[in-house]
Design a protein around this nucleic acid. Structure first.
Length: 417
RNA sequence: GGGGGGGUGCCCGAGUGGCCAAAGGGAGCAGACUGUAAAUCUGUCGGCGCAGCCUACGGAGGUUCAAAUCCUCCCCCCCCCA
């Protein structure tokens, strides 16, 4: 994971740069090309154009996206140009990478909304003032049929089927649409359009990134080199972080939420998160790893530190400290949080001055149906002022509920007013 | 264009006329244990104030006392041949 195949001789003038950019990458291809580009940039006194394409397919950026954004920010820090492509057009095609199914195609409105929040959230990691921000609809939209045909002529079906997920689906008798075949071609054309020197992406993008080289060459350009970063495993510890798997931590989530989600990751993921998400140097990560291995650092404590660090990054150190004490209070001491959201009892659930508990829970959004609410109650998951309620048929006097704290599960609290 | 296979709950998948709100697994949710970790165990897992009713097995009709299961038409996916 730390840059295999490091060329034996790194010229002194770019060594620092190279040794900072390489860690945290998986593939840097072709061999030695990055070093040559860094040197060329230096001798020609021009920054490298470093491309990153993101498709606004979901409204939020999560920590998984930040891995590659951080890498891009590193290039920025060395004076190179970050070219951030919002794939408004490709979002409509839907990248099938790593998926067993084709994605649903999005509407223009969804894409625009998503694109706006993406840029806003990417700014938490990237210096957007220095970045070049473009939308690929600007050049993909106006393409004429004959230009598209020229593009498709650059690649063979056999080459397409080299892509792992295409061939897997093909062999499993699952559909692969022609539209999906277009995706790598369009992404490659983006590289032509922005004259990319380097393209970054997750490891699942390797094929697409390499396709960019083929296509740039076909268009008479110097092919980009590529750098891939690891895919971040989500909070479930199993699958890559993704909104659709529900295992993500969004960069715009509240400090408390973020802290809690980090605490819920499996221990085995801690060091990886430390390495990929915090910006901590190699040495620091190694120290954490060693202390954990030696047993002098309790994993729960290490995870708190990790959570605090991440919250600091996306909120502030004050918010992080507060989130930490909130966490300890609620989950370690099993106490109530200091700040509990308030809600009034909806009038429609009150009948003759009393409320049927399941209906109350549903009305307040603490359960999705009366049936689920009953289940929660019967299983001892509902408390009123710290007392477990187990009678799902209970009728409570509405007047007496005011001021009480309703708790569902371990973490959902609501004060009734 | 011809022939064959298939579409089941969030996902995988069993089920070929009643015992089917549909086996089993996974995910989720709640509980126990704990460090909101892992592993494990228990319960639950369409809706309805629920011994009943409603909605559901790609869609629409039909046969039947009774259909996820049988028939007709349609839609979608895959394979083989052309």
């Amino acid at each position: 994971m730390d840059g295999e195949g490091m060329p034996p001789e790194i010229p002194a003038d770019v060594r620092d740069e190279y040794e900072e950019l390489l860690p945290g990458s998986v593939d840097v291809l072709p061999d030695g090309e990055l070093v040559r580009q860094l040197q060329r940039a230096r001798s020609e006194q021009r920054p490298l154009r470093v491309k990153l394409g993101v498709d606004p397919t979901a409204p939020d950026i999560h920590l998984g996206h930040t891995v590659v954004l951080r890498k891009l920010a590193q290039f920025q820090a060395f004076g190179h140009t970050a070219v951030l492509i919002i794939g408004d057009y490709t979002a409509k095609v839907g990248d099938p990478s790593g998926r067993s199914k084709s994605r649903p195609r999005l509407s223009d409105e969804e894409i625009n909304v998503n694109a706006a929040t993406y840029v806003e959230q990417a700014a938490k990691v990237l210096d957007m003032d220095k970045a070049e921000l473009v939308r690929n609809g600007d050049w993909l939209g106006p393409l004429r049929m004959n230009e598209v045909l020229n593009l498709t002529a650059t690649v063979t079906v056999a080459r397409m089927l080299e892509r792992d997920d295409f061939s897997r689906r093909y062999l499993a008798n699952e559909p692969v649409s022609m539209l999906e075949f277009m995706y790598p071609l369009l992404q490659g054309y983006d590289s032509v359009a922005v004259r990319a020197d380097i393209e970054l992406g997750g490891t699942d993008q390797k094929f697409n990134l390499l396709m960019g080289r083929t296509i740039m060459e076909a268009y008479g350009l110097t092919p980009q080199s590529i750098l891939t970063v690891p895919l971040l495993v989500g909070t479930d510890g199993e699958q890559k972080m993704s909104k659709s798997y529900g295992n993500y931590i969004g960069v715009s989530e509240s400090a408390e939420e973020m802290f809690g989600k980090v605490m819920s990751i499996p221990d085995s993921l801690m060091v990886t998160y430390w390495r990929l998400l915090t910006g901590a140097g190699k040495l620091e990560v190694q120290t954490v790893e060693r202390r954990l291995a030696e047993g002098g650092y309790h994993p729960a404590e290490a995870k708190r530190d990790l959570a605090e660090r991440l919250v600091t990054l996306y909120h502030s150190s004050g918010a992080a400290t507060a989130a930490r004490s909130h966490f300890d209070r609620v989950f370690k001491e099993r106490d109530r949080p200091e700040i509990i959201p308030e809600a009034s009892i909806p009038s429609e659930v009150i009948q003759n001055g009393s409320v049927w508990l399941p209906r109350l829970l549903t009305a307040l959004g603490l359960a999705s149906s009366n049936g689920e609410a009953k289940r929660l109650i019967e299983q001892g998951g509902v408390r009123l002022d710290d007392a477990v309620l187990q009678d799902a048929s209970a009728e409570l006097a509405a007047a007496e509920l005011a001021g009480s704290v309703l708790q569902v599960g371990k973490r959902r609290f609501l004060r009734l007013i």
